[in-house]
């Protein structure tokens, strides 16, 4: 086993383990902090999968901005100490675990199907593109070329989200 495979499985185990803790901890603060661990390990997986720029964005945007927003709201609402657990009873638990297990099995089968070999790029294609155009350049070039219109529409989406959040959160306009 090469080094990157060992690192991949180590962080994959960390991500799955902390995701389990995230959905089973009673306190929302503990859930949020375990989710941060999951997001960080996913960033490490992105590095192993030759997506260094996306990994940096993952840490900055997800583990940084979005999770701070979550923790802010949790602490603003003073949800730190929950008296009773909010996990459903035995019947709901059984049904939920069964449904999620079936879904996980169905999605897991995809790993043996995969895309057809004829359209696959060589395994080092992404690393070579990053070496030629730079890590950011290899992502930025298609973003501002083929995907320019979706990129601009994203700015409208973010503006709408800002206005919507202000309107919703303000007591009186």
């Amino acid at each position: 086993m090469s080094g990157s495979v060992i690192i991949f499985w180590a962080f994959a185990g960390l991500a799955i383990g902390s995701a389990v803790f995230c959905i089973t901890r009673r306190s929302p603060v503990a859930s949020a902090l375990w989710l941060v661990v999951t997001l960080f390990s996913l960033a490490a997986l992105f590095v192993v999968l030759d997506a260094q720029f996306i990994a940096v964005l993952q840490v900055l945007v997800y583990a940084g901005a979005i999770m701070v927003l979550f923790l802010f709201v949790i602490m603003l609402l003073n949800l730190g100490r929950q008296a009773a657990t909010d996990i459903k009873g035995p019947l709901g638990l059984a049904v939920g675990v069964a449904l999620a297990g079936v879904l996980g099995f169905q999605l897991g089968v995809l790993r043996v199907a995969g895309p057809p070999a004829a359209i696959l790029l060589p395994p080092d294609a992404m690393a070579r593109a990053a070496a030629e155009q730079g890590m950011v350049g290899s992502v930025a070039r298609p973003l501002f070329d083929a995907y320019l219109v979706p990129f601009e529409i994203t700015s409208v989406l973010l503006l709408a989200a800002i206005v919507g959040a202000v309107v919703l959160a303000k007591r009186r306009l």
Binding site: A19, I23, G92, V97, L99, A100, G101, G104
Partner: peptide, 10 residues
């Protein structure tokens, strides 16, 4: 699947 389980259980 873990995310779906969380949505269904909490």
């Amino acid at each position: 699947a873990l995310g779906v389980a969380g949505v269904l259980l909490r």
